[in-house]
Design a protein around this nucleic acid. Structure first.
Length: 975
RNA sequence: GCCCCCGUAGCCCAACCGGCAGAGGCAGGUCCCUUAAAAGGAUCCCAGUGUGGGUUCGAGUCCCACCGGGGGCACCA
């Protein structure tokens, strides 16, 4: 009889017979891991005390001055759970936190959830399940997966952005920003009340000059609203019918589609909430220099902000009805103004209609008219065509097109008339939407000039051997003089300075700075997000004006609604309008409030905040998660995040000590978060000027994926790698490489790896497969190497057949002590520098030495075993705790846990060898070697090398030209 | 098109300020244990650093050009 039951019995009997009973197997690892995870929870091992509030030390002791705040970019709890790529950063921060905790620092490390977001909402739309239910179920699942990895989080500090107790403070911060304005003189945000005082005391005059006191309440409010850091504006925004919401610029891809979901995005004029991030633009750029971030991320932020210095120049032009208007252009090259031979406006430029001529000049060039009978006609047709071009069309087709407006402007530098065109290579969204075209020094202008037969004048002399068209490099100015000024002969920088002074003196323009960054569109017409703490009066002269709720009205809780969907829109239908789901929550919508002028009826704002809101400030809530009085006690913020110039230099902006996450948030989360933090700093709520002092971007774990002959993905797990190729179920498959996930059918789950090897093995493998910042391929077959190492280490300390400790009190030999202390010194450096791959290699090397030396003896000397276990602990904490406790540390301080140390210190005595072997090179090639005392001076080493037999032979009695001695390294004899 | 990063053994990766190319793991070979097997033990094998120049006593490391891979930006005035 052979049923499934019989078979299983046979196999398990075999297993138990085969493996010694006390071997470190996956089953034993699992048992050890669960046991220590329970102990850590019971004992609150990773609870980090705060200086103030409920988390201050229970015995009244002061918190250690030496602290470390480590943070991961918190995950969105998706329905598909974690794959082995996700925890790479989580494990890395855990190792870092554990290492520093063992070295006596007070370490804050926890993890929460970025739990508002589209997937739960879309699932709700499909199934009717409340997004909160889906979200909370997913969080439970994530927590189980995270727990299994043995992450040493302070679980008291977990938050989810969807917790009402959390988003109450997100709303509070919104109100702080709403109730602030940017004082450009003081270069900081200030409370709105101070602006009101300035108006009331006439220290500041109103925009139209009317005395403040004569304005009605509604008028006063309207004036104030224009200054707020959050404001409503009617402007072209990114409308995404496919998502039913508007989006921020940062959420739209270069192809003009939504970052999430890849739906088409249309420009549409809508009234929307904006955050005045542009007020902080200079500080956001300049303070990058004070941050310990990779150059790559800094470059991406600088790029996005796009600050360029240049000048604004006004070109006079006659309108169609004979009036003089001015076309403002922005240029980074005012020095080339003498070479501006024509002008171009963006097709959407507001001046176009006003200045377009009614008739073509008699001598008009046929290629300039776009086949229109009149300029008006040609312009209308060109505008129509331009509006229909998608972003992609624009990028793919870079042939220069445009039409002449039939008018000329005057180049203020030369005084010459120059023709004015519209062309779609000039964008309305950047600068002033108009350019002076300088074909001699700009390739785009050159291309257009060639297509339209326009004159080209060089104003910078290219080098003699220059063979290109437009010349954008350095060189002396030429052809650049009028009766008042000459730039000729000046270098580019000098010429810019000189012309800018002349422009300012003559009123033709002025030096200015231009940015690509635009204000942050902050509202979403979705359900699953934070409601705005804003209401509007329904009657009276202030009706329709936004009014901030007082703090006492917080939180504004998200109401339940019948329909979660914003509305079903055709993703390609640009004519649709946002229809927020909250507008349908009628009971919630209307509210009776007394906001200072008696009870009145208000209706609530129906927008919700974007997902980025909650992640803008979560580090502050980790610090003080249970605080009901404030988002965060200032004493706690100062301790965990305050500047420490004595450690980090005078320019230290403060912020948490290590932030690890993927590079994909370079211009979204990381920019928004810095902005909010700076507002909070200006308003005095935090002592740090930046949220994240040090940022480290981990690489991605990718994996091979396989497609069959039809191009369909097959489960990567089941693919056989053979010498003649890769096969799945006998058929050949093609190998690809990409992100791990469901769509490529190549995801590997951490639970599965824990099942097969234990979480410690998984942790060790992930940390040793390469440097943290590098992306690399996952290879399940390699995991066994990490497991074997742990088995060997276990075997060096525990008898596999009896379970007895095999550790002796003998003194280790000097070779072993040298190996040990070299390892200790190296591991310290590697762990502190996040180089876990080399740290792990050093531990394996030491263990190999121990195996070789003591494997055949009665046991491993305790004085080697203990430090080895302690050094392993940050990487493989469960196994290390288990061995540490078996080594007899089960009682006493820290109740036998090594989580708080000690961590071994290297003894300098064993780091230096008594003798050093020097390789001896002759003309750069190693010919021999010689052993001398480490303490030997250069001369001794030199003579030892020269008197070495083979070298003496090669030198053969002559005088070497040169002998180079590199102390501790080598000797090179040059003949 | 422009900018940044990376090319070291069959594979993943080490190599400090330029100083003996190899720490570690996978795969492979041989042997041991074993009726057999491996997630056991021992041991061995493997490249001259993408290519071509240059600087240097000496280059994986610095410089130049090119090739290949990855990423960012892209008609930004």
């Amino acid at each position: 009889m052979s049923g499934p039951g019989t078979r299983r019995t046979t196999m398990s009997t075999r297993d138990t017979e085969a493996a010694p009973p006390y071997r470190y197997t996956a089953a034993m690892a699992g048992e050890i891991e669960r046991r220590w995870q329970d102990r850590w929870t019971e004992r609150g091992t990773f609870h980090a005390p705060n200086p103030a509030g409920p988390m201050r030390p229970s015995d009244g002791a002061a918190v250690p001055e030496d602290k470390l705040f480590v943070q991961d970019m918190f995950p969105y709890p998706s329905g598909s759970g974690l794959h082995v790529g996700h925890p790479l950063g989580f494990i890395a921060t855990d190792v870092f936190a554990r290492y520093h905790r063992m070295n006596g620092r007070n370490v804050l490390h926890t993890m929460g959830f970025d739990a508002f977001g589209l997937p739960a909402e879309q699932y709700a739309v499909q199934t009717g399940t409340h997004p909160r239910t889906t979200t909370e179920d997913n969080i439970v699942r994530y927590l189980a997966q995270l727990r299994r990895l043995g992450l040493g989080h302070d679980e008291r500090r977990r938050i989810a952005t969807t917790d009402i107790g959390y988003y109450r403070w997100t709303q509070w911060i919104f109100l702080q920003i709403f109730n602030s304005w940017y004082d450009t003189d003081a270069d900081r945000a200030r409370p709105i009340s101070e602006l009101e005082q300035q108006f009331a005391s006439e220290q500041r005059s109103t925009p139209d000059g009317q005395p403040w006191a004569q304005l009605s309440t509604a008028e006063q409010r309207a004036v104030i609203n224009e200054y707020r850091l959050v404001y409503l504006s009617e402007a072209p925004v990114n409308w995404c019918p496919g998502l039913g919401t508007v989006l921020a610029n940062e959420e739209v891809t270069p192809e003009g589609r939504s970052d999430r979901g890849n739906f088409p995005v249309f420009r549409k004029n809508l009234k929307q909430w904006m955050m005045r991030i542009t007020a902080y633009v200079d500080r956001l750029v300049d303070d990058l220099e004070r941050l310990d971030w990779s150059d790559k991320i800094k470059a991406m932020q600088r790029n996005w902000i796009g600050r360029s210095h240049g000048a604004r120049i006004r070109f006079p032009v006659q309108t169609g009805i004979g009036e003089t208007a001015g076309i403002d252009v922005f240029t980074t090259r005012p020095d080339t103004a003498f070479g501006a031979t024509y002008m171009v406006l963006a097709p959407e430029h507001p001046l176009v209609s006003a200045i377009t001529a009614h008739h073509w000049p008699s001598d008009v060039d046929a290629t300039w008219t776009g086949d229109g009978d009149t300029p008006t006609e040609a312009v209308a047709e060109y505008r129509r065509q331009a509006s229909q071009k998608s972003e992609l069309d624009r990028q793919e087709n870079r042939d220069k097109t445009g039409v002449f407006l039939g008018v000329h402007a005057t180049n203020p530098a030369t005084g010459e008339p120059i023709p004015v065109f519209i062309a779609d290579y000039v964008l309305m969204g950047y600068g002033t939407g108009a350019i002076m075209a300088v074909p001699g020094q700009d390739q785009r202008d050159w291309d257009f000039a060639e297509a339209f037969g326009l004159p080209i004048v060089r104003t910078v002399a290219p080098p003699d051997d220059f063979a290109g068209q437009a010349y954008v490099g350095e060189g002396p100015a030429i052809n650049s003089a009028n009766s008042e000024i000459s730039l000729d002969g000046l270098a580019v920088d000098e010429a810019k300075k000189a012309i800018t002074e002349w422009l300012e003196a003559t009123g033709h323009g002025e030096g200015t700075v231009q940015y690509k960054l635009r204000d942050w569109l902050f509202a979403r017409q979705r359900y699953w997000g934070e409601p705005f703490p804003i209401v509007y009066a329904t009657e009276g002269d202030t009706a329709g004006q936004p009014v901030a709720l007082p703090e006492s009205e917080l939180p504004v809780v998200l109401p339940d609604v019948e329909e979660y969907a914003p509305a079903a829109f055709d993703p390609d239908d640009a004519s649709t309008e946002p229809a927020p789901p909250l507008a349908k929550a009628t009971d919630w919508l209307e509210v009776e409030l007394d906001l200072g002028d008696g009870p009145r009826t208000y209706h609530r704002d129906t927008n919700v905040m974007p997902q980025w809101a909650g992640s803008c400030w979560y580090q502050l809530r980790y610090i003080d998660p249970a605080n009901d009085e404030a988002m965060c006690d200032p004493a706690n913020e100062r301790y965990w995040m305050g500047p420490r110039p004595e450690l980090h230099g005078d320019e230290d902006p403060g912020g948490l000590d290590l932030y690890v996450g993927g590079v994909e948030h370079a211009v979204l989360h990381l920019l928004y978060s810095r902005f909010w933090h700076k507002v909070l700093y200006d308003l005095g709520h935090v002592s740090s000027e930046e949220p994240y002092r040090r940022l480290y971007n981990q690489g991605y774990i990718q994996a091979f994926a396989y497609t069959d002959s039809r191009g369909m993905y097959v489960p990567a797990e089941e693919v056989e790698e053979r010498e003649d190729g890769d096969f799945w179920q006998g058929q050949p498959v093609r190998r690809e490489y990409g992100k791990m996930g469901k769509s490529l059918r190549n995801a590997v789950s951490p639970d599965d790896m824990s099942e097969r090897y234990g979480a410690d093995t998984l942790r060790l493998y992930e940390m040793s497969m390469g440097p943290l910042e590098a992306s690399r391929p996952w290879a399940t077959k390699d995991v066994v190497g990490a497991h074997r190492f742990l088995q060997r280490l276990w075997r060096n300390l525990v008898d596999e057949s009896t379970g007895e400790l095999r550790v002796v009190d003998d003194e280790p030999g000097v070779e072993t002590l040298r190996a040990l202390h070299r390892t200790i010194a190296g591991v310290h450096e590697d762990f502190a520098g996040l180089r876990y791959n080399t740290g792990a290699a050093k531990l394996i090397e030491l263990n190999n030495h121990v195996t070789k030396t003591y494997g055949g003896r009665a046991g491993t000397p305790r004085s080697v075993a203990e430090p080895m276990v302690l050094m392993l602990a940050p990487l493989c904490p469960h196994l290390a705790e288990e061995l540490w406790s078996r080594l007899g540390h089960s009682v006493g301080e820290n109740r036998g846990s090594l989580a708080h140390g000690p961590f071994p210190e290297a003894d300098a005595e064993y780091l230096l060898e008594e003798t050093t072997e020097y390789p001896i090179q002759v003309n750069g090639k190693v010919r021999s070697r010689v052993v001398v005392a480490t303490s030997a001076g250069e001369d001794e080493v030199r003579s030892a090398a020269l008197s070495e037999e083979r070298i003496a032979e090669l030198v053969a009695g002559g005088e070497p030209r040169k002998v180079i001695v590199v102390p501790g390294r080598l000797v090179n004899v040059v003949l």
